[in-house]
């Protein structure tokens, strides 16, 4: 049992070392304005590289889905360029290398799962073998069922199978694990990781921040049609923690910038805020009744000091600043 609980860092796949991988998809300074006058994307640029898992995060209306639609050639930009494999996303050649899982309310209900998969396999020149799709999407027990008979999670798995059907090099997953139970979700994550290991590029939008954290090599936070920040999950969390501190000005004095080693210690202690703030590395303290929440850049030193001063200190939990906190802080500045 590790003394310091953390997000499963070992599970976070790292981008293959070596030369920078080729760009497979690119939005270049893209603006999308609807006829209604709403600006969905406002000069947004992003690029996806071979073998990468990228998570697009943002609140509703941030422009995530619009960005995905543009990359799928379902919509055209008002300004800027979209390139998929160096081609127009509407080219059949580009589409033959792309798979998509979109938020679909209803697929034809009176077709069986295997029939849906067979239909999508037929669209591609070199589809994934059917048995591989069944294994990858976990369709074993539902392949002969009608789509209309499936539960929400099973429908998601079927739609995921359709996205994989063509063995595409670039896969878009729009909120892929909505309605899935934990087990299916983890199985899907494993499949996505193995796809990336095979050199496939995956872009997912999600509102499960845990999902982005556990899965993505890179997170792009989008809000108001712009990229707010991007980086590895750890980097985004660090930036977000600064934003958390910065936005909590009503409670505290200005705080130093946090680094990626920053942890949050929860515990029950008799120590008061003045004591805690004087300890090494401590940046921020919140005490509610007996429960203390201490933000520190040197968690080991802080803990030693706390245990030395309070023999009865208990219920210790040490966590990384949650991506959720970072995300909320980053996107909270808008009206």
């Amino acid at each position: 049992m590790p003394a310091v609980m953390d997000f499963p860092v070992t599970q976070q796949p790292s981008i293959p070392a070596g030369a920078v991988a080729a760009v497979v998809a690119e939005l270049n300074n893209v603006t999308k304005r609807y006829r209604s006058g709403v600006t969905a994307l406002d000069g947004l640029s992003l690029s996806l590289r071979k073998g990468e898992i990228v998570a697009l995060l943002g609140p509703n209306g941030a422009g995530k889905s619009t960005a995905v639609k543009l990359m799928l050639g379902l919509s055209t930009p008002t300004a800027g360029t979209v390139r998929i494999f160096g081609q127009d996303p509407r080219d059949t050649a580009a589409r033959m290398r792309t798979g998509a899982m979109l938020q679909v309310g209803r697929a034809p209900e009176m077709l069986r799962v295997r029939e849906h998969v067979a239909m999508f396999r037929g669209y591609y020149p070199k589809p994934m073998p059917y048995a591989d799709i069944v294994a990858a999407a976990g369709l074993g027990d539902i392949q002969h069922r009608f789509f209309g008979e499936l539960s929400g999670g099973q429908k998601q798995r079927t739609l995921f199978a359709m996205a994989l059907a063509g063995d595409p090099d670039l896969i878009f997953l729009d909120e892929p694990t909505v309605g899935m139970d934990i087990e299916s979700r983890r199985a899907l994550w494993a499949t996505i990781r193995s796809l990336a290991e095979r050199g496939k590029t995956v872009l997912l939008t999600t509102h499960y921040l845990e999902e982005a954290d556990a899965l993505a090599h890179r997170i792009i936070v989008v809000d108001g049609g712009r990229v707010i920040c991007q980086g590895t999950p750890a980097e985004v969390k660090a930036i977000g923690t600064e934003a958390v501190s910065g936005s909590a000005t009503e409670a505290a004095k200005p705080l130093p910038a946090l680094n990626t080693g920053t942890k949050i210690i929860h515990c029950v202690t008799t120590l008061n805020a003045t004591h805690l703030e004087a300890m090494p590395g401590v940046q921020h303290v919140i005490i509610n009744t007996a429960q203390a929440r201490v933000t520190t850049s040197q968690p080991e030193a802080t803990l030693r000091a706390m245990l030395a001063l309070d023999a009865e200190l208990h219920s210790i939990e040490v966590a990384s600043p949650a991506l959720e906190d970072a995300f909320l802080a980053l996107t909270a500045h808008r009206d």
């Binding site: 309310g105 697929a107 359709m162 063509g166």
Partner: peptide
């Protein structure tokens, strides 16, 4: 009309189906 409403037509259009 139902396929449009459900987003199914969009998924079909995003695929390389003619």
């Amino acid at each position: 009309a139902l396929d449009i409403n459900a987003g199914w037509l969009e998924l079909k259009r995003a695929s390389p189906m003619p």
